[in-house]
Design a protein around this nucleic acid. Structure first.
Lengths: 223, 223
DNA sequence: AGTTCGTTTACGGTTTTCCGTAAAAAACAC
DNA sequence: GTGTTTTTTACGGAAAACCGTAAACGAACT
């Protein structure tokens, strides 16, 4: 079993349970931090001392407080950690159940497992740890994502749409988005193309207008 | 100290910690449910058997799954419980940190304490339990609500605005909202008045347009 | 080079929002 | 009851979204 495990989880009401779960698996060296920055430092340090962590169990969203942090969420943390220690195994333990986001974590960050916080997630987390230790990857133990978008859709929605919706949600009008896209080299960037894309999104999400579309995008966690 | 306590919390990773906290306070009769409906039934039953619960510790948001439930969140649960057993003490333990919502719980549901899930919430929860047992009320142990709206604003924003924003977020245009308001007797319900109110909201939230406004309303948890 | 096909962009008309001003109605004061 | 203030509603013009159509462009192939 894993020897040295780091937990990145801000809520103490949850981290305590994770620690206990790890103890039940006879893992002796369990460390816990409440901030992403701290997690990164710990991993760096352990690496420098030639006693690197075997496994990182991380939440995705961390509460903001008085402290200024460079890494503000689990995605940034994992991306940073993988750059410095690519061999480390990673399990994400989060309440997020949108398959869009989960898939992107497997594809972009190459995490080893994803466990959705739920009514029976402790056992699932335990299983996930076992599986990852046995060398398996792409593990997800869900009630396969209830209120998320279907698989097909996810493929169609890309970074372009996210940018578009994000700018729209920030109050920019189409013209301004066009200018913005031209600045950042995002293509296509004509007024009409952007309108057309918005129309596709509206059709897809069954939205009556832009306002409705943004509301839906917020609800589904797309932006 | 309290003798009989019920915990309503869906995430097992959190409930386990709460149970342990209660055990540390030498509370012997600790019950735990993962669904609001179950909580209500337990309380009814305990009352019928003349051994009512002293305290209810409840989360606010519960994940939806295959099960059909009448009570879908902590607010509904507490409202229902108070109707049948007004003497019960209630502590809300939730990640929600918008003072708008927290205040409404104290005012409308007359909860006894509110603890925000955070980096040191276990100790705060413990303190809250002690305080409620000692007869105190209106307890809130926060880093006083970071990313929420200020006090003044909350007073100004009322049910009317929520309805307005909600309808807008559902894709209705001003004209349709007017009709809707006339149907439901919401006043004022003229096109211009609704526009004027929207303008106030836009000024207040520093929103460029309706799309922006809805995005902000979603972000702040107003709708 | 020319053809085809798909994508991007341009344009125009209609609807809705946006943002004033003014009239009407209601609430209030005396 | 009359005048005053506030709130609500009506209206109208400018800006933006909305929606269809057509032109321009680019890549792939012959």
């Amino acid at each position: 079993m894993f020897k040295k495990v780091l937990i990145a989880e801000d809520l103490d009401s949850i981290s305590q349970t994770i620690i206990q779960t790890l103890e039940n698996l006879s893992i002796t060296d369990i460390q816990h931090v409440k901030y992403c920055d701290d997690a990164y430092i710990r991993i760096k340090k352990a690496q420098a001392e030639n006693e690197p962590f075997d496994l990182l169990i991380s939440d995705l969203s961390f509460k903001q407080d008085h402290r200024e942090n460079k890494l503000v969420n689990g995605e940034e943390l994992i991306a940073a950690v993988k750059k410095t220690q690519h061999t480390i195994k990673t399990i994400v333990f989060s309440i997020e159940d949108k398959s869009f986001k989960i898939n992107s974590l497997f594809n972009n960050l190459e995490i080893n497992a994803y466990v959705i916080k739920g009514r029976n997630s402790i056992k699932e987390l335990e299983k996930a740890i076992q599986s990852v230790y046995n060398g398996n990857t792409r593990i997800l133990l869900p009630h396969t994502t209830t209120n998320s978008i279907t698989e097909k859709s996810i493929i169609e929605i890309e970074a372009y749409d996210i940018s578009l919706l994000t700018l729209l949600s920030k109050g920019l009008i189409i013209n301004e988005i066009t200018t913005e896209f031209k600045k950042s080299g995002m293509l296509p960037n004509g007024n009409s193309s952007i309108e057309k894309r918005l129309n596709k999104l509206k059709t897809y999400f069954k939205a009556n207008n832009n306002v409705h579309l943004i509301a839906i995008a917020k609800d589904t966690g797309l932006i």
